[in-house]
Design a protein around this nucleic acid. Structure first.
Lengths: 132, 132
DNA sequence: CCTTGCGCTTCCAGTCGCAGGAACCCTTAT
DNA sequence: ATAAGGGTTCCTGCGACTGGAAGCGCAAGG
């Protein structure tokens, strides 16, 4: 099948699929006319990548996962290790964003948000009122 | 003062300060020898940007905040609106990451992580066991 | 037979926020 | 005079695409 069909079936834009081929993540056969030709198996792998990406795996990690996906002998521990690493990253990011959230929320709570110019948010950013 | 001193006092790398000048965020005077020349006021603004960036504001938002920072007549509501928008973005990102976290955690909980090849993580990514 | 229109191809540029490095100039101290 | 440690500009690259231009392939309609 052509790239457009593969795109619809995998949920990835054709541009992205070409990009993945470009970086050597997933290559397709070529038809006689030069068009990329995708099998069902190719589409499965594209969907696999699409899901992994949407779960926050980087393209590099998708590359690893793809090779683990294709390897019927590999231990599930290998996959779990990658997932655990990613889970840790996600947790750290959540903590970081939560701190950010609280800090910004704190500044906002103290800002009246009216027509007057006094603004604790700006003061907080400029550091003028945060000193000891 | 030279850019290196401004960098130390603002907490921003010199490279970044030059970049900010390049994109028109913050420009500095020039000394006779062509070196950038920073006043205390410039350093204040650099610190301001540094703090805003570390709070997750984009460079574009920093641009807005800087103009609000310099405008003594502006309403605190204007600043609060930008902060509220950013707070909403942060909240949405946290929700998204939490969903990701739970999904991935779920997959991992069901994976034995041993030497055998059966792996619910891979199965989940490939979609083979996720159907209704 | 010719055209229209879509899909496919390649390649180039841009996004965001810098970081790294080359090649060169200026200042200060020895 | 020289060496070290500033500074300057410009170019490249990162990640993961996205948009667009120029040009081919192919089926259908007039």
């Amino acid at each position: 099948m052509n790239i457009g069909t593969a795109a619809r079936q995998s949920g990835l834009p054709a541009k992205t699929i070409r990009y993945y081929e470009d970086i050597g993540l997933l290559k397709a056969d070529r038809a006689a006319n030069g068009y990329r030709d995708y099998s069902k198996h190719d589409v499965h792998r594209l969907r696999f990548v699409q899901r992994a990406r949407s779960l926050g795996f980087s393209v590099g990690e998708c590359r690893q996962l793809l090779s683990l996906y294709s390897d019927r002998e590999r231990a599930s521990a290998d996959v779990k290790a990658i997932a655990a690493e990613k889970l840790g990253q996600i947790e750290r990011k959540i903590v970081e964003l939560t701190e950010l959230h609280d800090m910004l929320g704190h500044l906002m709570d103290n800002c009246r948000g009216d027509a007057r110019p006094e603004c604790p948010i700006i003061d907080g950013l400029s550091g003028s009122t945060s000193g000891p």
